[in-house]
């Protein structure tokens, strides 16, 4: 049930996100104070140039940092929502776009675009990369499910194992493309390790166009998702068309994953950690959990990206950082789950 305590928590997350965005914008090689950041942002609305501020700062804020920061926040939020949706549909706390192999599928699809350019087929990348990423994600989803379908209950272990197998094959595929496209290795490494370097307002726009409607779509079905936790058979007897909703939400979550990967490469475990932590605080009700995941995922990924960008002596790929944190966390959840099974 939604209480005022829950809404308060959502409000707090929203304020933390705004504060993180503003302070992250000030961090970096050029230090800009939060007040100055707010003044610069305000001047964009009023159209007056701010007084007493270094004239290069508005350019740094608006053209260099803010697009990257907003992209990181959107991708973090999107991946966390996608993870929460996968977990709720599959009744599986270990599911997330990365462990199911969906992220690798999207990355493989996106890197196929390079093969096309080798054969001289040129499609504008703003169009081809998201579309190929989505096709790769959906194909992977189908492959993982058909591999796991021998186990009719779709148990955690079968599904995750299928995801790992398919992801391994896809990584080899990406490696092969890397071999073919030797002068463009840098781009492939980007797909494999994930990065927000050089994101533009165009990226902010394309991710927003998919992620916000996707979030609204999942929220529309949040109560049905709760009922589906009772199991597909019982959910059907409560008037929920679970097989239709399941398909639509799987496609929606894959689409969110695909757009995220197409602007940032593979970033693992955000979709695992954020829903898990928030479920411990807020409980499993998806009507509260999904918006909280969006805000929490945005804060976490933006925070991690700001650490690699502004604090570390040299920038390490963000995907590497999240996997370094997320991998052990995955071990922890897996172990807890296995112990619960055997107790």
């Amino acid at each position: 049930m939604i209480g005022s305590k829950h809404l308060f928590f959502i409000g707090v997350l929203f304020i933390i996100l705004c504060a993180t965005i503003i302070s992250a914008t000030g961090m970096g090689f050029l230090k800009i104070s939060p007040i100055e950041v707010i003044e610069i942002l305000w001047s964009q609305f009023t159209g007056q140039s701010p007084e007493g501020i270094n004239p290069t700062f508005p350019f740094v804020v608006m053209e260099v940092r803010l697009p990257r920061i907003l992209t990181a926040a959107l991708v973090g939020g999107g991946l966390a929502v996608a993870g929460a949706v996968f977990q709720a549909i599959l009744l599986n706390p270990l599911a997330d776009p990365y462990t199911l192999g969906i992220s690798s599928g999207a990355a493989f699809g996106a890197s196929l675009v390079i093969i096309l350019t080798i054969f001289g087929i040129v499609i504008p990348p703003w169009f081809s990369i998201p579309v190929f990423a989505f096709l790769g994600a959906i194909a992977t989803l189908i492959a993982v499910f058909s591999l796991a379908s021998t186990d009719t209950s779709l148990s955690s272990n079968t599904l995750i194992l299928s995801g790992v197998i398919i992801a391994a094959i896809l990584s080899a595929g990406i490696g092969f493309i890397k071999y073919l496209a030797d002068e463009q290795v840098g781009i492939i490494i980007f797909w494999l390790m994930g990065s927000f370097v050089g994101r533009t307002w165009g990226d902010v726009l394309t991710t927003s166009i998919i992620i916000f409607p996707g979030l609204l779509f999942t929220l529309y079905y949040a109560r049905d998702l709760n009922i589906m936790a009772l199991g597909e058979r019982t959910a059907n007897t409560l008037g929920v068309d679970s097989s239709r909703i399941k398909k639509q939400l799987l496609i929606c979550a894959s689409l969110i994953t695909a757009i995220s990967v197409s602007v940032s490469g593979i970033i693992g475990f955000i979709g695992l950690i954020v829903p898990h932590l928030l479920r411990m605080v807020l409980g499993p009700d998806n009507r509260i959990l999904l918006p909280a995941c969006f805000l929490g995922g945005a804060i976490l990924l933006l925070g991690a990206d700001t650490i690699t960008r502004a604090w570390l002596p040299s920038e390490i790929p963000i995907g590497v950082l999240t996997s370094l944190i997320g991998g052990p966390f995955f071990c922890y959840i897996f172990r807890k789950k296995q112990m619960a099974l055997h107790s």
């Binding site: 936790a229 409560l238 409980g283």
Partner: peptide, 17 residues
């Protein structure tokens, strides 16, 4: 059940339709 819904929430799910 894999998610820790409270007993009250589960019974309330019966009111869904």
């Amino acid at each position: 059940m894999d998610f820790d819904y409270r007993v009250y929430d589960i019974v309330l799910m019966g009111r869904h339709p």
